[in-house]
């Protein structure tokens, strides 16, 4: 199978605490994969391992970008992960609050441009063209995401739902092959969640970007994911299609507790 992301037996220890224990996970090209589990199950830790924020204690993480070579990416620098084509959003929105919406997205273009200090000072025509390309491309992304009329607004002045969308726009600007969304629907109202659902599917279908998302909102998880992985206490307890996961007794137990007679 053509997996774009392949995680084999990843373990992450923090001192004596084992946050992840031998987790396997694959994301195939063009898939929407959801990672679910109760609070503290290690989902965000998993994201941090994949995007280079943590270096996993054991195990291997491989990526194979479409049309690129398969490579092991354990413990690479965070910015390298983005350069290689993995972009993420954060559980607590982490925008650049005092920059405009457009500039936030332009930062995402940073790693795809190359003007250096001298280029910035002399501003020759290739630098100008590159700048204009950054602006135009960023604007196009904002049109797709639906933030085109708030281009010059400061990011901190956007409503919460829009901030989450902007984070996705910024991540898309890095031209990823894999988008990692950490609880994209958190704090959104039902209408916003619905729009987000459409957006995620649209990103997958039109931009051909595979998606791995952590989400607590079961409605969105069940309706758009192709496959679901369930983590509990740092271990993978189940994987499968939404229908399989819904029926899985282990998952039900993990979510509802031991004593429930269901």
């Amino acid at each position: 199978m053509d997996s774009v992301l392949e995680v084999n037996g990843t373990t992450m220890d923090f001192g004596g605490l084992r946050a992840l224990h031998a987790v396997d996970l694959q994301v195939r090209q063009g898939e929407i994969v959801a990672l679910i589990g109760p609070n503290g199950a290690g989902k965000t830790t998993f994201f941090n391992c994949v995007t280079g924020i943590y270096d996993p204690t054991e195990g291997d993480i491989f990526i194979s970008p479409p049309g690129g070579k398969r490579r092991r990416i354990n413990g690479i620098k965070i910015n390298r992960a983005a350069e290689l084509g993995m972009a993420r959003t954060f559980q607590n929105v982490r925008l650049f609050p005092n920059m405009t919406v457009l500039e936030n997205v332009m930062i995402g273009r940073h790693c795809r441009a190359k003007a250096g200090v001298l280029g910035a000072i002399f501003r020759g025509w290739d630098t100008r063209r590159e700048e204009q390309e950054i602006v135009d491309h960023s604007y196009e992304i904002l049109v797709k995401i639906g933030l085109a009329d708030q281009v010059d607004e400061l990011a901190k002045n956007l409503p919460y739902g829009a901030q989450r969308r902007l984070e996705i726009a910024r991540a898309m600007a890095t031209e990823p092959f894999l988008l990692l969304l950490d609880e994209p629907a958190a704090g959104m109202n039902p209408r916003e969640t619905e729009a987000l659902e459409e957006l995620i599917v649209q990103i997958r279908d039109e931009e051909k970007i595979s998606i791995l998302m952590i989400e607590h909102d079961m409605k969105i998880v069940m309706s758009i994911s192709d496959r679901i992985f369930v983590l509990d206490y740092g271990e993978k307890i189940a994987e499968g299609t939404p229908a399989e996961i819904r029926e899985n007794p282990v998952v039900i137990k993990a979510y509802l507790g031991e004593d429930v007679n269901a």
């Binding site: 995007t51 620098k77 983005a82 940073h110 991540a171």
Partner: peptide
């Protein structure tokens, strides 16, 4: 503005 987010965006 945000060191971690900035790195995650490839800077």
């Amino acid at each position: 503005e945000d060191e971690v987010a900035c790195q995650a965006m490839g800077i």
